[in-house]
């Protein structure tokens, strides 16, 4: 990560690089993040390069460039927290006051503002546009994200992660880790538009083994769908229909489906082998 510093701009509009650049790895990330390091450590985080820029009023822009080890992991880090408009930087981006986030290749980037956010907006976007070309080549999002059933998929609401804490922050299922998620599992969480305001949720989990997938299926049915029949579907009161099914080492769970039929169909589509 250290070599990237020499290629970064020393000044962006009226903001000049200030202080010492810093690099943190898995062991030292806690020195940089007092709370929040686990969010990154739950991915294949390799390191983060940090540079600060300051203007004449001593307001700060902080550039963080994270090496996540692979494009899939970089996409995952980006995908956890999308809610602002796309600004077409890197392979996926979003900007809202005081925060630019984007990913490209194996890198995830965040640019934050300490101080007047409106004043810094042009510089933040300019800095993002200057950094993105340095982080190539492009890479592919996770294959399991690309393989999600396409009909009704709200693409920019799809996220990729590994463990329970990320699932809970994206979509609360249970305070307990009923799906047995950990660093060895890969998860895609997606939303599907159903017309009107209706939305169904789909969680797809790829386990290291079929045995773990079956164990998670049993755990989830026991905890979440005690009334489910052999087909793994059950009514969930005001939350519509839910389904939990597996195929080999993959589990599909559907929540908030409008009908039993839709819940089962979406789960089956998610479990269908890629052609």
């Amino acid at each position: 990560m250290t070599d990237i510093g020499s290629r970064l701009p020393g000044q962006v509009l009226g903001w000049k690089a200030s202080g010492q650049d810093a690099v943190y790895d898995r062991k030292t990330l806690y020195d940089y993040m007092d709370g929040g390091a686990e969010v990154y450590l739950a991915f294949d985080f390799r390191g983060v390069f940090v540079r600060r820029y300051a203007d004449d009023a001593a307001d700060e822009i902080v550039l963080d460039i994270y090496d996540l080890g692979s494009p899939a992991e970089a996409f995952g880090m980006f995908s956890l927290d999308r809610q602002d408009p796309e600004v077409e930087i890197g392979q996926g981006s979003e900007y809202g006051p005081g925060l630019l986030r984007f990913w490209r290749g194996r890198h995830f980037v965040s640019i934050t503002v300490a101080g007047d956010e409106d004043k810094a907006e042009a510089a933040v976007l300019e800095l993002g546009r200057a950094v993105a070309p340095l982080l190539g080549p492009d890479g592919d999002p996770p294959a399991m994200v690309a393989a999600l059933p396409a009909e009704g998929l709200i693409a920019d609401r799809t996220s990729y992660f590994h463990d329970h804490v990320h699932l809970s922050n994206r979509y609360f299922v249970s305070p307990e880790n009923v799906f047995g998620l950990d660093a060895a599992t890969s998860c895609a969480l997606a939303e599907y538009a159903l017309g009107g305001d209706g939305r169904a949720r789909l969680l797809v989990v790829r386990y290291p083994s079929a045995e773990r997938a079956r164990s998670a299926e049993a755990s989830a049915r026991r905890s979440l769908l005690p009334g489910a029949g052999d087909d793994g579907t059950a009514a969930a009161g005001k939350k519509g229909w839910a389904a939990v099914r597996t195929r080999e080492n993959v589990l599909a769970a559907v929540f908030e489906a409008p009908s039993k039929e839709y819940a089962g169909r979406l789960a089956d589509a998610a479990l269908r082998p890629a052609k």
Binding site: D34, G96, G98, L99, T112
Partner: peptide, 11 residues
């Protein structure tokens, strides 16, 4: 609510 690298946003 928390967002960003340090789970903080003035928003």
């Amino acid at each position: 609510h928390g967002r960003g690298p340090h789970n903080f946003s003035r928003r």
